[in-house]
Amino acid sequence: MTRSEFDDIRAHIAAEEGDSDDLLQIARTLLDDLEQARLREATLRARYLGLLTAARATVASDAVGDPNPLTFLRHELGKAGQVPSGDEEVVRILADARTAEELLAHIDEAQPTRLRTSARMRRCAGAGRRLPR
């Protein structure tokens, strides 16, 4: 939804005052929550794009032999206060990265296999089933 759509909905809700105040209050709350969620998503997307751009610039910088290819990534992480600052933190971050790698590797393996249902079961089950007359 665009900002103007949110404003249009708010104006419509404001015009309906008095009829069902409880429902209108719920609608306002839901609209505010939706707008906040949309703002959080936009912020996360922007941060992700910044990190992705920094990562790509770091790899490109390394590819051309730059003596300090991590400059872009350090800068981006520094803006968010995420540069590791001690040996203990570095060890924890590397352990977390290894664990995440292992978990991601097992996601593909752990996909449940779907049991095939027989044709007879498919005909008998479901909301569209009709009883004989």
Rank of each mutant, 00 (worst) to 15 (best):
T2L: 05
R3Y: 07
F6M: 06
D7E: 10
D8F: 05
I9K: 00
R10V: 01
H12V: 09
H12F: 11
I13G: 03
A15T: 11
E16C: 10
E16A: 14
E16P: 01
D19P: 00
D19A: 14
S20G: 05
L23V: 07
I26Y: 09
A27G: 05
R28C: 01
T29G: 03
L30T: 12
L31T: 00
L31K: 01
D32R: 05
D33K: 08
L34Y: 13
L34Q: 13
L34V: 09
E35I: 02
E35W: 01
E35M: 04
Q36T: 14
Q36N: 11
R38D: 03
L39Y: 02
L39A: 12
R40Q: 12
R40V: 06
E41P: 00
E41W: 04
E41A: 06
A42W: 01
L44F: 08
R47M: 04
Y48C: 07
L49M: 07
L49P: 00
L49Y: 05
L51V: 04
L52N: 14
L52M: 13
A54R: 00
A55G: 04
A55M: 08
R56V: 10
V59G: 03
A60Q: 13
S61F: 00
A63K: 06
A63Q: 04
V64I: 11
D66S: 12
N68F: 01
N68W: 00
P69M: 13
L70M: 03
L70K: 03
T71F: 08
T71M: 08
T71S: 11
F72T: 02
F72R: 02
L73T: 00
R74T: 09
R74W: 08
E76Q: 11
G81P: 00
Q82I: 00
Q82C: 02
V83F: 01
V83D: 00
P84Q: 06
P84H: 07
S85R: 12
S85Q: 10
S85L: 03
G86T: 11
G86F: 05
G86K: 08
D87Q: 15
E88A: 15
E88W: 06
V90T: 07
V91A: 15
I93N: 15
I93T: 14
I93H: 14
L94I: 04
A95G: 14
A95D: 15
D96P: 06
A97G: 03
R98L: 14
T99E: 10
A100K: 15
E101A: 12
E102S: 12
L104P: 07
L104H: 15
A105E: 12
H106Y: 05
H106S: 11
H106L: 13
I107D: 02
D108S: 11
D108W: 06
A110N: 09
Q111E: 07
P112A: 03
P112N: 04
T113N: 03
R114L: 14
L115K: 08
L115A: 09
A119E: 14
R120L: 13
R120P: 01
R122C: 05
C124Q: 13
C124I: 12
C124G: 07
A125K: 15
A125C: 13
G126A: 07
A127V: 10
G128Y: 05
R129D: 00
R130L: 15
R130Q: 15
R130S: 14
R130N: 13
L131N: 03
L131H: 03
L131K: 06
P132H: 09
R133I: 09
